[in-house]
């Protein structure tokens, strides 16, 4: 187990390195650098602040070779936890992002739970009662869930909620609670709002997972060890949960690895539609105005956290399945 852990941690290093390079390339992609634009703006406004400009230029190594810029950028992040400043808002990136990142990952993790708690029983039912009415219904909704893009579902739900239930839509709390300190009432209000993004983001993932669970379980249901368990005199329900479901769960757990990135992605796009105080709207805004250190930092952190999530899922899998541990 320790060797496995070590190997997985080692694998992470090149991945993280690639993530940082990719992010850096994205930051560099727009032509010119933001300081040029800033200087032009300042010039127009009649403000001359060469000293500040020069300091910024120095800090980010602008105008120097690429690898120097990359090195300076990474040095700031790794050694000082300094992600640079948002040029547009002129405040450190650190001040802007952490709250929103916490919400993004909070919602993503809640969505993951939602997916598990819906996909597991439905998937099992679908496999055990193959070709039953329930199976067809589950399959149909599964396909529908996969076919509706997140943002479209978000729009439809908002429309329905507004038109037929008169519910205020968008945001995580009602407007009157926006700047209030946390209280029981605000928490309840949060619960009334947060289910919608969770449902919207989770639908496609749940649909996919139901299909995976069904297929996996169907693979296992007719294995000889199931017959053995039956021949031992176990009841169908007992043996179902103890043997085939237990084995079919492995790929289920490993899905954290691939589903987490899609959840984070989905959360970002749904947040834009539903106007949630998470990474999505901020990232979109930063990309549109080319506030590249802000955007880059968010892409970097979201990616790194996702990679870590994948690692956790791998470890969990090894913990659950002895066969992987001993490989």
């Amino acid at each position: 187990m320790r060797g496995f852990l070590l190997r997985r941690l080692l694998y992470m290093i090149p991945t993280l390195f690639l993530v940082s390079i990719t992010t850096f390339i994205i930051i560099q992609l727009p032509p010119g650098d933001y300081l040029d634009a800033l200087a032009a703006d300042m010039g127009e406004a009649g403000v001359e602040n060469t000293a500040v400009m020069e300091a910024l230029r120095q800090q980010y190594g602008l105008g120097q070779p690429m690898y120097v810029q990359y090195f300076k950028w990474m040095k700031g992040i790794l050694l000082e936890g300094n992600f640079g400043i948002s040029f547009e808002k002129n405040v450190p990136v650190n001040d802007l992002i952490w709250d929103r990142l916490a919400w993004t990952f909070g919602i993503s993790i809640l969505t993951l739970m939602f997916i598990w708690f819906t996909a597991l029983p439905i998937g099992i039912y679908s496999a055990v009662r193959k070709y039953s009415v329930g199976d067809y219904v589950a399959t149909f909704f599964g396909f529908l869930g996969l076919a509706i893009p997140n943002f479209l579902l978000a729009l439809v739900m908002m429309y329905v909620a507004f038109k037929y239930f008169g519910q205020s839509v968008g945001g995580l709390v009602s407007p009157e609670y926006l700047n209030q300190p946390w209280s029981w009432a605000k928490f309840v209000d949060l619960l009334q709002h947060i289910w919608m993004p969770i449902f919207v983001v989770g639908t496609s993932g749940a649909a996919a997972l139901i299909r995976i669970m069904r297929a996996n379980l169907l693979d296992e249901l007719y294995r000889p060890y199931v017959v053995t368990a039956r021949a031992k005199g176990m009841s169908e329900f007992q043996l179902l949960l103890r043997y085939p479901v237990r084995v079919a769960l492995n790929p289920f757990i490993s899905t954290i690895g691939w589903i987490l990135p899609t959840l984070v992605s989905g959360e970002i796009i749904v947040a834009v539609v539903m106007n949630l105080p998470t990474t999505g709207p901020l990232l979109l805004r930063a990309l549109l105005v080319q506030d590249m250190y802000l955007a880059g930092s968010m892409i970097l952190i979201v990616s790194v956290l996702t990679v870590i999530g994948t690692l956790i899922s791998d470890l969990l899998l090894a913990w659950v399945d002895p066969r992987i541990r001993y490989q």
Partner: peptide, 14 residues
């Protein structure tokens, strides 16, 4: 392992 939407957004915005 990288979330696609932010990556796409970054590339497409460029």
């Amino acid at each position: 392992s990288v979330p696609t939407i932010p990556l796409w957004m970054g590339l497409a915005a460029a």
